[in-house]
Amino acid sequence: MSKNLFEQIGGEPAVNVAVDIFYRKVLSDDRISHFFDDVDMERQAAKQKAFLTMALGGPNKYSGADMRRGHAHLVARGLNDSHFDAVMENLAATLQELNVPPALIAQAAAICEGTRNDVLGK
């Protein structure tokens, strides 16, 4: 296998560019912004970066159990499939804006999809 998804996209520098765009979309999205509103923005941006790194197949240290624990308080506040879908949409839109080829966007979407049940505590 040649370069992986994370390397093809451009590695950490690409993720740094994507974080601002992605987080701005999420905060402007009425369907999900309330889940992101009441937290420290710096910390939140660090989390978005960790999320994008993971979604793009980069190095990450999150297990399924971490995902469950990390989102349990949001599930208690009503986090469901529709919100997960909204995040997926924002991710795809971010990558399109950065001219990432559709095949790579599909790979990123597949990685995220793999975390759905853990994130939603199913």
Binding site: V19, D20, Y23, L27, S28, M41, A45
Partner: peptide, 15 residues
């Protein structure tokens, strides 16, 4: 303000 200037296009690193 952090949120509003960010949504107005300022980069997180510049706030």
């Amino acid at each position: 303000a952090r949120k509003r200037v960010f949504l107005a296009g300022a980069s997180m690193r510049e706030i």
